[in-house]
Amino acid sequence: MMITLRKLPLAVAVAAGVMSAQAMAVDFHGYARSGIGWTGSGGEQQCFQTTGAQSKYRLGNECETYAELKLGQEVWKEGDKSFYFDTNVAYSVAQQNDWEATDPAFREANVQGKNLIEWLPGSTIWAGKRFYQRHDVHMIDFYYWDISGPGAGLENIDVGFGKLSLAATRSSEAGGSSSFASNNIYDYTNETANDVFDVRLAQMEINPGGTLELGVDYGRANLRDNYRLVDGASKDGWLFTAEHTQSVLKGFNKFVVQYATDSMTSQGKGLSQGSGVAFDNEKFAYNINNNGHMLRILDHGAISMGDNWDMMYVGMYQDINWDNDNGTKWWTVGIRPMYKWTPIMSTVMEIGYDNVESQRTGDKNNQYKITLAQQWQAGDSIWSRPAIRVFATYAKWDEKWGYDYTGNADNNANFGKAVPADFNGGSFGRGDSDEWTFGAQMEIWW
């Protein structure tokens, strides 16, 4: 008995050590931004985005507190085989008060198993909700290839000249389909599951310092038995992507060409959309029709120009041509140079221009935006974070068209359509004006 009692403290210590080691193995990653800002004409900070554009130049032009908190852990490992559990909870508030209630979004919860298939060394099996191989332009917060959501897949299969990845994910639309009631009355209240099937071939070395990635995505509306879509709904579509990445000037340049059809055009990033119906009456549900095509040509990157200068840049042309004439032509160009006074202090400027032409009206909206920021960051790279910055932003815009969301679809035949700025004596778009804002912001990723 005495021997047992003497061994007990040692056993407890060993158990505590094991539990401590396991606790220390938890990975904590994430992203956050928050700050305070004012508008020159009075009131809180207002942000500037061109009507019809899918993004905006973000430096000194973000008006919310946003965070993603990721917890993950390698829960099992034997040799080169392992299982990893990953989670991500995100939230966004308007940064107007101390207490701002919000419903967090559970954006990731997945398990990734590496090297589980003997004859596919280096590959990963995964299932669950996941940010899946996302491609974006940081300076405009624009995701041009992103099929994230609940799904499953097999990735990084070594095929000799590259890595092959296969995945299936889902994005549902509210009110996407109906069941038959009586007297030809349909009640569009059932969600429609939109499935996306993704095939990618990446890391193909085609020139010194250059790699090529090719991808095909097929999206479709997956209806339940005895349900139907509204007439004209976009049932399926394709997205084709080619991306060349070149190492240059201690950074990279990415050149991207994408072509999409029908349900893959509205978001243009790989998620299927077009079966959703915002109104019970299918007579007024025309606005979900996105049959047509999209072409996107994009070049972006980040480079170092000597010891003291870094720069991000982007140039993009996007043409969404829809059968219902509600598409757009959008082109944007911008730069973000950074001058480093010390390894932790810099001055950053961002200059961006957007131009969006309405397919329906032929009119154009444009905006110039310039931001000057003094910044303190954890390192001497344009990617170094955390960063604390004080900024001043000036924007000038001239908008000739907007979307008509007055009333509702039952009493407005133009609901959701592009109209000229002065349509029917109204005021659509943001008109011709300018404004400036100033404030302070922190940004961090880890």
Rank of each mutant, 00 (worst) to 15 (best):
E213D: 06
Q112H: 05
F252C: 04
D217A: 04
G35S: 01
D187E: 02
A260T: 01
K235Q: 15
M338V: 12
W341R: 01
G42S: 04
L166M: 08
D136Y: 07
W76R: 09
K81M: 05
T87I: 00
E357K: 08
D363Y: 11
N291S: 13
F255V: 09
I344L: 12
I140F: 13
V26G: 05
H138N: 13
T241S: 13
G42V: 05
T361I: 01
D141Y: 15
R224C: 00
Q367K: 10
G306D: 00
A285V: 03
D354Y: 13
Q374P: 11
D187N: 10
N207D: 04
W238L: 05
N287Y: 08
G315D: 00
D217N: 02
N411S: 04
R33L: 06
V196A: 11
N156I: 15
M294V: 02
K7I: 13
E357A: 12
A13T: 08
N222D: 07
L116M: 14
A21T: 05
E282K: 05
A395D: 07
M24K: 04
Q45E: 02
K254N: 09
D86G: 04
W76L: 11
D398G: 03
L298F: 01
S20A: 05
F255Y: 01
L5P: 12
S177F: 00
A387D: 10
T361N: 13
Y31H: 06
D422A: 15
N411D: 07
R170C: 03
V390G: 09
G37D: 01
G72D: 10
A167E: 13
I157N: 11
F415L: 07
G113V: 11
R220H: 02
N253T: 11
T211R: 14
N190T: 10
V348L: 05
R220C: 01
R58L: 12
T102P: 15
G232S: 05
I335N: 00
E243A: 11
P343T: 04
R200S: 14
F423L: 13
N355D: 01
A181D: 11
E191D: 10
Y218C: 01
I36F: 06
I185F: 15
E399K: 05
G232R: 11
V257G: 02
V256I: 02
M204I: 11
E108K: 07
F279Y: 03
G210D: 01
N281S: 08
D410E: 14
T50N: 13
D280V: 02
G37A: 01
G362D: 00
Q246K: 05
M19I: 09
F83V: 06
M312L: 05
S177Y: 02
K400R: 00
N115Y: 11
Y84H: 13
A193V: 05
P343S: 00
G301S: 00
D434N: 14
Q203H: 09
S272L: 00
E357V: 09
V356G: 12
E155D: 11
V277D: 05
K114N: 12
W436G: 15
Q318K: 04
G128V: 09
L295V: 01
K283E: 14
Q73H: 09
N222T: 09
A378S: 08
G306S: 04
G162S: 06
G301V: 12
D231Y: 10
E435G: 12
L69F: 12
Q377E: 13
D422V: 12
N281D: 06
K369I: 00
D398E: 11
N222K: 04
G431C: 12
L10Q: 05
M264R: 09
D103E: 14
C63F: 15
G72C: 08
I297N: 00
I444S: 15
S82N: 04
D410G: 15
G439C: 14
F240Y: 04
D262E: 02
W309L: 07
G43S: 00
M2R: 12
S92F: 07
T361A: 11
M294T: 01
P420S: 08
F83Y: 12
K81N: 09
R296P: 00
S234A: 07
V256A: 03
N207H: 13
F391I: 02
R224P: 07
N61D: 07
Y227N: 04
V196I: 08
G153V: 14
G315V: 08
W322C: 04
P150H: 02
N412I: 02
K400N: 09
R385C: 01
M305I: 05
F131C: 11
P150S: 15
Q375K: 13
L212S: 02
Q73R: 06
P343L: 00
V277F: 02
Q267E: 15
W331S: 15
S358T: 03
T406N: 09
M19T: 01
N365Y: 07
T265A: 13
I125V: 10
Q359R: 11
V230A: 11
F438V: 15
G431D: 07
